[in-house]
């Protein structure tokens, strides 16, 4: 790929993924919205074919019924950016781990598990990272009772 073209990439992806991929954008980012089971495939494509080698940020947001996982991707050194969003339901908060595609997801997924209670399937060591192991609950959930 000689010159990177975001539009071309989006078109290609839309063609390949079809209905499964929903593209949205605001002033700062282009968001690729996708279902949980298709996430690893999309990430693999983004990394291998389009050179998004830097997973800058992985974070979960609690939207009452659903959790949204946001992955902010950059490419070093070309510096293109894209964000991937995945929604999972509150009752079944699980999605595949992308640790073997982006090793940096290791601790970030553990953090999301620790603070938001999202379980990443395929993560080899999904244990609490910031809170003690015997802590009850996930503090960043909106229904977590605050004390004091």
């Amino acid at each position: 790929m000689d010159v990177f073209n975001l539009e071309a990439m989006l078109q290609e992806l839309q063609q390949e993924m079809g209905e499964k991929l929903e593209i949205d954008e605001d002033a700062f980012f282009t968001y690729l919205k996708i279902d949980a089971q298709d996430l690893p495939a999309l990430m693999e494509t983004l990394r291998q074919r389009y050179g998004f080698n830097h997973l800058a940020n992985l974070c979960a947001v609690d939207y009452e019924e659903e959790f949204e996982l946001v992955y902010h991707l950059y490419s070093i050194p070309d510096n293109y950016k894209v964000a991937v969003k995945v929604r999972v339901s509150r009752n079944k908060a699980e999605l595949p781990s992308i640790m073997d595609i982006y090793p940096t997801a290791d601790w970030q997924e553990r953090e999301a598990y620790d603070l938001m209670g999202i379980s990443f399937q395929g993560h080899p060591n999904l244990v609490r990272i910031l809170l003690p192991d015997d802590f009850a609950g996930h503090p960043l959930r909106k229904d977590f009772k605050k004390e004091g």
Binding site: N53, A56, Y102, P103
Partner: peptide, 17 residues
């Protein structure tokens, strides 16, 4: 890059970022 290291630690590896 794979582990998302940034800042001076990344530049010490010779990556101009």
């Amino acid at each position: 890059i794979a582990y998302g290291v940034t800042g001076p630690n990344l530049r010490a590896c010779g990556i101009d970022y």
